[in-house]
Design a protein around this nucleic acid. Structure first.
Ligand SMILES: [Mn+2]
Ligand SMILES: [Mn+2]
Ligand SMILES: [Mn+2]
Ligand SMILES: [Mn+2]
Lengths: 222, 222
DNA sequence: TGGAATAATAAGGTAAACCATAATTTAATT
DNA sequence: AATTAAATTATGGTTTACCTTATTATTCCA
């Protein structure tokens, strides 16, 4: 199937694309922003990935993973989330930093190691951030959840997953106890993109709208 | 101490240098051979590493790790051997392939992860190939052992470590049961760089001289 | 139907690690 | 001391993945 190993850069582009969309086309500008590169660089990379058959680019419309690209992305995400499990459950590494360390290891993990690790971990279904772990064949489906930012005041929800990856964002969420499994109630939503006030673990916490988009929940009480 | 992370290539050069000499100077040609690059490339790299204060190069004499370089090398080797322990003891990966997988992971391992891993493993003293694991500060001393190639016929020894890293060599040693902890007796040494015949685990095995140099033993019976 | 964004291209650079080939320098040995 | 082998330098390339500054092409929206 996959002949040559993909470069770290390639894997990060594929992963970002998979995380950035269910199936709809992605604006190259958004991708560039996500990866911290210029739009020109992202464009160049899209050409290269297109030549390798990993992405389909419709100029002025956007990019999409091909079947091959989506499978490769799933494999990267699988490795990443399995490492997250290991680092958190066994090495006792701080929740907020698990992602960044796993993001290094994911590119240095041979398939045999990935599958042995999965076995060792007991084939976990989700990572410590609550995100589902793709199958060994690279297949995966997006989590069926609602962003916290779409909750209405008074509603209560179960926190399913955190899709953030930036260390400072994770650190903040960790400090405020905004973690998978917890119950949250939206107390107030300030107007004009204002912060949300949520009650979690008996405490009231303020969250900016952009951060609330990274928090995925399932409504349990309206 | 260390400001920027070293590149994978840099780490492999440092590791090769540490493995290639106790304290004496290393011929750049040998280094190049070890790393599978041309002498010209190794020379260029020595210039770069010299500028970074990691190696000292005396033209036409050879290269040496500086204190800084030796410490950095020790850190790489520590990561590598800790991963070898994990892959072998916990993931049940085949002895002969553990090195190659650890050699990937070693470059993607943050210090926090290294130390948590050491803790998780119970601070092992040696890797599955029998080589000592450097301390957390990067310090290490060469193993006090005799190459199997220097044994005299009739002598019996305890196998301490295998310093080989090439997958095919490790595979051969694994198949023939030439593993740390075993007892070996040198039965015969053919003349003219000829093969050694050793008895190990009740079986007679032939080993070429170059391969016998990779096998480190402690003589227990003359 | 304009503009204003946004996207894409063109053009020219950089840095790290590699390569080959050829010339030069030094060391080692007969 | 001459020869040979090994090491070094000089030159000029390659690939990947970045960058900047223009310029051009589309879309979309008021
Ligand atoms: Mn990564
Ligand atoms: Mn390595
Ligand atoms: Mn160009
Ligand atoms: Mn050049």
């Amino acid at each position: 199937m996959n002949l040559k190993p993909l470069s770290e850069s390639t894997e990060m582009y594929l992963k970002a694309m998979a995380e950035l969309s269910g199936r709809d086309v992605i604006a190259v500008g958004r991708l560039a922003e996500r990866l911290g590169v210029t739009p020109v660089s992202a464009n160049e990379m899209m050409r290269r990935l297109g030549e390798q058959g990993l992405v389909a680019h419709t100029p002025y419309k956007g990019v999409n993973l091909t079947k091959k690209g989506r499978e490769a992305a799933g494999n990267v995400i699988r490795r990443q989330r399995l490492w997250e499990c290991f680092l958190y459950d066994h090495l006792k590494i701080e929740w907020a930093r698990v992602y960044e360390f796993a993001c290094l290891l994911e590119h240095a993990t041979a398939p045999e190691v990935t599958e042995s690790l999965a076995e060792f971990l007991g084939h976990p279904k989700t990572c410590p951030r609550g995100n589902p772990i793709p199958e060994a064949d690279g297949s995966f489906k997006p989590l069926d959840a609602t962003p916290l930012s779409e909750l209405k005041p008074g509603q209560t929800a179960r926190l399913l997953a955190v899709s953030a990856t930036a260390a400072d964002v994770l650190k903040y969420l960790q400090e405020k106890n905004i973690l998978p499994g917890r119950e949250v109630t939206l107390l107030e939503l300030a107007p004009l993109q204002g912060p949300l006030t949520v009650r979690i673990e008996e405490k009231d916490v303020a969250l900016g709208l952009p951060m609330a988009e990274f928090v995925l929940v399932k409504i349990i009480k309206s």
